[in-house]
């Protein structure tokens, strides 16, 4: 696996009149982990969703390994559906709500993309899906339907589903926010393993511990702006911007008991 780099420059996005992303710059080196933190509504998820063009951005450039995302040329027309799909094959995404397909078993959830996108035969896809689930410690849940799995297990299936496609970049959109506290650890453990294997990861999270220990860089967003981006220890322990200090203070107060 050769990990991809991500480069955003002066990215703007809108929801109707609402300016969701304001001239955002961000660069993620291959094999590095960047955590996006900040208050809700600050544009973290929007930024993440722009990277695989689930949310179209209005101006600026997003490049993966130098390749422009979503448009033929900067400010030009949208790329074709086929080219967009080819690009998305390289990008795995994990959602807050897991978004597993409830009418398919864990194994079928993982195999579906292998069949439909990679064109594998059923037997090969099933074997690869079993491997992928084994790697997230769910080798004994192949035939389970999502409704029979805990939140943590469902999210690990979702990670396996994304990883089976052999992406070169993984996007995580608040992967543990919908989980009961005791289930957060098992998902973070899988993510740590991925990071250690050298996957490029962009993670929207409220898990400051994960950001502090796993992220190479932490980016703080507020009101659509990327306020600061740097090594975790600088951003989390010695924030220069008062907005970051304020955010971390409310965060600490909420988690104090």
């Amino acid at each position: 696996m050769d990990a991809a780099s991500v480069e955003l420059s002066r990215v703007n996005a809108f929801f109707g009149p609402f300016h969701a992303l304001k001239d955002v710059d961000l660069s993620v080196a291959p094999g590095r982990v960047t955590c996006l933190i900040g208050p809700s509504g600050s544009g973290k998820s929007t930024l993440l969703r722009c990277i695989n063009f689930l949310e179209p951005y209005a101006s600026g450039e997003i490049r993966i390994d130098g390749q422009l995302v979503g448009y033929e040329t900067p400010g030009g027309k949208r790329m074709s559906g086929a080219r967009l799909r080819a690009m998305r094959r390289e990008i795995g995404m994990v959602f807050q709500a897991f978004n597993l397909w409830p009418h398919m078993t864990a194994q079928d959830n993982v195999a579906e993309g292998l069949c439909r996108v990679k064109g594998m035969g059923r037997a090969e896809a099933a074997a690869r899906a079993a491997d992928a689930l084994e790697r997230v410690d769910l080798g004994d849940k192949l035939a389970s339907y999502p409704s029979r799995l805990s939140g943590g297990q469902q999210q690990r299936v979702a990670i396996a589903r994304a990883m089976a496609m052999e992406p070169r970049l993984m996007l995580f959109d608040e992967p543990t926010s919908a989980l009961d506290p005791e289930l957060v650890g098992e998902v973070l453990a899988v993510m740590k393993r991925l990071a250690a294997e050298g996957m490029t990861m962009v993670v929207v999270t409220h898990e400051m511990g994960f950001a502090a220990h796993v992220a190479d860089r932490v980016a703080f967003m507020d009101a659509g702006e990327l306020v600061a981006c740097g090594p975790a220890k600088d951003i989390l322990h010695a924030p220069e911007d008062p907005r970051i200090a304020g955010f971390l203070r409310t965060y600490l107060e909420r988690n104090a008991f």
């Binding site: 799909r85 998305r88 959602f95 597993l100 397909w101 993309g113 996108v117 589903r161």
Partner: peptide
């Protein structure tokens, strides 16, 4: 979200 998950994979 279930449709987006499929799109994100490239289906």
């Amino acid at each position: 979200g279930q449709i987006e998950a499929a799109r994100a994979i490239g289906i």
